[in-house]
Nucleic acid binder design. Structure first.
Lengths: 338, 338
DNA sequence: GTGAAAGCGCTAACAA
DNA sequence: TTGTTAGCGCTTTCAC
């Protein structure tokens, strides 16, 4: 295409420089070039440029499920925030499948992305080896790993658990249960925050009041929550407050409680996590902890951009814990003054 | 990297061919090469390859809002379906902003994507000119345009409207209203299907029973639906069935109806469109028309892959109308057998 | 079956 | 201020 631009009697180099506003180019020539470029609607081939500069202006994102509002929200925020900086976002959904995820990682690496952003479904840190070996900066999202040579942006999950639990305590709950999630950092953090908040108020959870939701994760969360809550209701003494790993499980738990002829929040107050968009419209609007997907996405975008710029000097590992926000609705509000 | 592979005493060419399972390469050499490649964890640079082959194995996707479950579902399905074929998905959210969308189009073009998939927010077909000029195949998604030189995959919106309306009629509604959406093909199609279904049953909508939701689109759909429904309730005679452009507006409408002391579905049956995931958990579970985002995504993926292969011989314009599916819930079911 | 030469579209050094 | 020479990492003829 530059050949075509040579009908200005210039060399390819000059045009190239003019296009990138290189300092040592005459204002007049630059004008002529830009004008002709506009006429022809010419656009430089970014691939070719990348091949020589080594920067692709591409950020790779791998999430377990694009349909999940949390990840979709993050993806949207990243997309919006990098747009103005000239970056593109290569997204793939790993479908909660560790093998697919590894394949995606290799794929992104082959495409020479500048940064990889990864909400991993792996259980080990092995999958990251290849990324490290290539020297590609990596940002872990949401789920944390112990010895990973990667940056991290996600929620402060202990704060999530503590926030929800403290709220239940403030609403007068004293026998608080927890439906805990799978064996990933988020679930562990929320459980730990739960325990911490109880301890801070001189309380403790009865062991049988902490139920695991099973490996279903968010998939069949409603059913898992329903089942777990039914078991929990059979315990004596009964819980009077329940913090659920996520909103779907909280929904299921609420169904179980209502079916048992109990009232929410009077008999049992229920709070979830995720603040899904339907929370307002339920039979009993669901209290929840908002994770701030938008904020997470913004911070990821900002970090990714700075990493993409500094390909050589690896920045020190950055850990960014986004604070959660409590959204109290009818399912927990027992005292109007709250 | 190939240089490194030259420690096998082969030429770059041979390695290149071996990697791509070129026919005229000795099985023995191929083995040696692949072995060494595995040892080193070498991966060919896809950019460099693209530069010479002209195919980038990249599909560009632009949607108005990645957070919207309809588009997120499509994106997820596309991502999953192209994965195995070696394609990558470059996604961007235009945020319902036509200018941002045009910028994204140029960006994708500069990146030499093989196919552009676009759920456009444009009102005219001008934005597509550049795509055509470049000869990049284009698939329009969801929203249709009259004279566009592009393929189309989306819902059969007339069928959406007809399906919902026929269902209301079958449930005994006779004075059916419609909250219609903005001036895009989807809203027009649903309105037209609505009218057609009524006509097919010897009915017609009173003009004052068709209310526009205003330009809010899906954004503040709930409020828009609430407002529109309140106006509708003031009319005499009152509607006994209501087909809403989307689920959020149906939710708002339901709120208005319940607040007015009327029953759903006994006094007014309500159906939306989109089948959002919360529909099951509402005070009155909401009937809806499912658009089949997954199916749309699959068909897009399939079409995109075939287009990406045939860059030279432009395929005949393909129009793929995915049939909608009725999901009847409590908000419309008046006759248990219905 | 293998390799040498040429080039994809662009930019980095240096020279002019 | 502009142009020349190289070369990014790969694939394509087309000889050998």
């Amino acid at each position: 295409m530059k050949d075509i631009a040579l009908d200005l009697g210039l060399s390819v180099v000059t045009v190239s420089k003019a296009l990138r506003a290189h300092p040592d180019i005459a204002e007049a020539t630059r004008r002529r070039v830009l004008e002709r470029v506009a006429e022809l609607g010419y656009q430089p081939n970014l691939m070719a440029r990348s091949l020589v500069t080594g920067q692709t202006w591409t950020i790779g994102l791998i999430v377990p499920d694009l349909l999940h509002p949390f990840f979709a929200g993050i993806a949207k925020a990243i997309s919006n925030d990098i747009r103005g900086h000239g970056y593109g976002l290569l997204i793939s959904s790993s479908d909660e499948d560790p093998d697919a995820e590894r394949q995606q990682i290799r794929h992104l690496l082959a495409r020479q992305v500048d940064v990889i952003v990864l909400a991993s479904t792996q259980t080990t840190t092995d999958g990251l080896r290849e990324i490290e070996r290539r020297g590609t900066p990596c940002i872990l999202l949401d789920r944390r790993f112990a010895g990973a040579q990667a940056h991290f942006v996600g929620n402060d999950d202990e704060a999530v658990g503590a926030l929800a639990t403290a709220h239940l305590i403030a609403q007068g709950c004293r026998r608080i249960g927890h439906l805990r999630g799978p064996e990933v950092s988020t679930a562990a953090g929320r459980l730990s925050g739960f325990r911490q908040a109880l301890a801070d108020h001189g309380l403790a959870a009865a062991p049988e009041h902490v139920m695991a939701l099973g490996p279903s994760g968010d998939h069949r969360g409603e059913e898992a929550g329903y089942e777990a809550a039914r078991q929990l209701l059979a315990m004596t003494p009964r819980v009077d407050g329940l913090f659920c790993y996520n909103d779907p499980s909280a929904l299921g738990a609420m169904r179980a409680v209502l079916e048992a002829g109990l009232r929410v929040p009077d008999d049992i107050a229920i709070i979830g996590c995720g603040n899904l968009s339907y929370a307002d419209f339920l039979r009993v609007p669901l209290s929840s902890v908002d994770q701030g997907a938008g904020a997470i996405g913004q911070r990821v975008a900002q970090l990714a951009i700075s990493l993409a710029g500094n390909k050589k000097a690896a920045l020190p590992l950055h850990v960014d814990l986004v604070p959660p926000r409590l959204v109290a609705r009818a399912s927990t509000i027992r005292f109007p003054r709250g």
